Computed example of a mutant assay.
Amino acid sequence: MMLLLGAALTALPLCLVFIIRLYIVLKTGPNHKPGAKGPVAVLVVAGSGGHTTEILRLLEYMSAAYTPRHYVIADTDRMSEEKICTFEKFKQQSDSKSQFTICRIPRSREVHQSWSSSVVSTLNALWYSLPLVFRIRPDMVLCNGPGTCIPLCVAGLLLGILGMKKVLIVYVESICRVQTLSLTGKILYPLSDYFFVQWSSLRDKYPKSIFLGRIV
């Protein structure tokens, strides 16, 4: 009993430091406009099906400053890579300096997977996300809802908590979410630097969110 109490007392200061650092990271915005000081390295989280289609539509309207683009897809996703390569082929026709990579990590949650087992699979995805994000050190994580983005955003936040780099978390809620946020959106709402919704009804419910109309 005394050993457990001693361990708890030892861990308490570390937990307090972690919470304080997390608060500072979440409250500290970018010190300059993205792209104002050169290229912006973007980690783009692509999900299977509609998520990938929407995120690629969004990237069509982003300037050439957002490069290189590091796409991350689930290891069981067989369709997104082809879509990304097709998109980047056309992208490079107008910008020969455009660069991209495609990386894979384990999926956080499969369709119809139980919530209890998804905790284990999410931790497994985080195990692969940490070294990936620490190696890439992106300026921004851009995502729009697939569960795979949660461990990647956590890894990006950890870079800031450790004082290594401030990584912007930019979340765009899917256009199909009209009245309520997706589960991923609810988790990342308090953690994101910019949180975009595509319906005014969501903007009214979530005051931190940004409504610019239909953007994808």
Rank of each mutant, 00 (worst) to 15 (best):
V141I: 15
D193W: 09
S116I: 12
L43E: 09
P190Q: 07
L188W: 10
D95Y: 05
L3D: 13
S209F: 06
G29S: 04
T10N: 06
K186C: 13
V216A: 11
L9A: 14
P207C: 04
L3W: 10
G47C: 07
K33G: 00
H51L: 13
E54S: 14
T122A: 08
A7F: 10
L191D: 08
I169T: 14
L3T: 13
D204L: 13
V197Q: 13
P34T: 04
P13E: 05
R135V: 00
Q99T: 11
Y71W: 12
L159W: 04
S200F: 01
A11N: 10
I210M: 06
L22F: 08
V44Y: 11
T10L: 15
F134I: 00
Q99N: 07
V133L: 05
R214I: 09
S200V: 09
D193M: 11
A46F: 01
G156P: 15
R104D: 02
K166E: 06
L59F: 06
P190H: 05
E173H: 11
P39F: 09
I105G: 00
A64S: 14
I102V: 15
P146R: 05
S63C: 05
D95Q: 04
V133H: 07
Y194W: 10
T148S: 14
M164R: 15
A155L: 03
Y66G: 01
L26W: 06
A7H: 10
Y206K: 07
L142V: 02
I24S: 09
F195M: 03
N31W: 04
A125R: 03
A155Q: 01
V44M: 12
K89T: 14
V42T: 11
C15V: 14
S48N: 12
T101G: 08
P68G: 09
Y23F: 14
G147D: 01
T184M: 03
I55Y: 08
V111P: 04
R177D: 07
R109L: 01
